[in-house]
Design a protein around this nucleic acid. Structure first.
Lengths: 230, 230
DNA sequence: ATCAGGTGATGATAATTATCATAGAGAAGA
DNA sequence: TCTTCTCTATGATAATTATCATCACCTGAT
């Protein structure tokens, strides 16, 4: 991880989104004290169990939230793009992170000391209210996605995650999978072998094409039907 | 549902928990305008799709949060006791509820208009901050429980939910199940038949006793091991 | 009182998923 | 270079779970 501080808040398109109800002087205070961090693909941004010190949000990149289950296996909680909070869960309710965050692509975060955020929050109700809305939207999304995946079976889950990457992350029918088969398995809660098998089957049926990490969705309608019919 | 308004806030033990950072005049304003509602076991408190108008919390009773999946089947999101918010998800981020709430036991809710809460929140950062903490804690709990259940298999899930009711809800090794076998199935994401079979097996193995709705945990250690070893 | 419908229960069987084994390709390290 | 490790891939088999059928019991409705 590399720590830099060259970001100018004036040009930051995220500023207005996150801090719409903050006064100019409060923003100035944030901007001078915030730190920015660069991560390479694969780097760990947050380690489960660490003390929560910063309020972190993703400026650019793609990350995964995950935690290690009882049996040593990892479980992926969700994927997050910029404008989703990285510091979603536990941020206001816990002392320590109960999940980890790692970069799936080169990423940049903007960090603000929690005390700073809490100090502004305690003085500025409108800010806190807009914060609560955004945090809630993100956790709602996680829960609804969990329920969505839960009601599907193997093939439906595979179809669902392919459509998720295609539509929500890359907005294209052809994309490089940012995760390994193993990570897909950790997200949908199935074994690697079955993930690989399902992808192979989808390829054999002419629904997708696979070139190494690249996936091309050939027959989106059928993929959609598989996703919906479990 | 019956609407009453006889609750006196002075004696309300929940007041200080939820509204610790609220001024006396703000509390008075809340107390005069809040409404209280009584529900019988089985009553629906919130219907999925309804407009969110009130901030609702549970005074007494036990409820379930659930939503209807694509295939018509219902999925139970979580169970909630007093001091857990009922209006957890979507409350600050959505216009309409994306889940339903029903009473598993006779329950009483205290309702406050959302505008009232938002109005206090926008003027009182400390209040909003303590609110965000509580809402986050509850949604965190849901997500962690989801992950916990997800990594277990049928027997582990059954053991887990029995221990959950025993320890978290009733604090006793003997209790009446507040939910049907079907509802357990809807929570753990398995079929009713398999839930019933698992309970029968646990009974045959002498780990629990079943008298109609009553469950008695005989061998808690073994149940714990089953829960942990999936 | 009787009927319909929901719930709990159990068995037989089918479908789904996990586990184990094996193998090639590529990456990282000695 | 050679070894080791991880990832992708596939097959065979075992374990797990779902589906279907049947039945008893209870409750509410007509």
């Amino acid at each position: 991880m590399e720590s830099i501080n060259t970001c100018n808040c004036e040009g930051c398109e995220l500023k207005s989104l996150f801090f719409e109800n903050v006064t100019t002087s409060e923003i100035e205070s944030i901007c001078t004290r915030k730190t920015e961090h660069e991560y390479s693909k694969g780097d760990i941004i947050i380690q489960e169990g660490e003390a929560i010190q910063d309020f972190i949000y993703l400026k650019t990149g793609l990350v995964k939230l995950y935690r290690s289950g009882n049996n040593g296996k990892e479980q992926i909680i969700c994927f997050a793009l910029p404008l989703d909070f990285v510091s979603l869960l536990s941020i206001f309710s816990e002392q320590k992170y109960n999940y980890s965050v790692a970069a799936l692509e080169d990423s940049v975060t903007c960090n603000i000391r929690m005390e700073e955020v809490k100090s502004i929050a305690s003085q500025n109700g409108k800010f806190t209210l807009s914060l609560i809305e955004k945090v809630n939207k993100a956790t709602d999304r996680i829960i609804l996605d969990f329920l969505e995946v839960k009601q599907k079976r193997l093939y439906g889950r595979i179809a669902y995650i392919l459509l998720y990457f295609s539509k929500k992350i890359y907005n294209s029918k052809s994309f490089d999978l940012p995760v390994s088969r193993k990570e897909i398995a950790e997200y949908i809660g199935m074994t690697v072998e079955n993930v690989i098998r399902s992808l192979s089957d989808l390829r054999k049926d002419g629904i997708i094409k696979i070139f190494g990490p690249n996936i091309e969705i050939v027959d989106e309608d059928r993929l959609l039907r598989i996703s919906e019919l479990s």
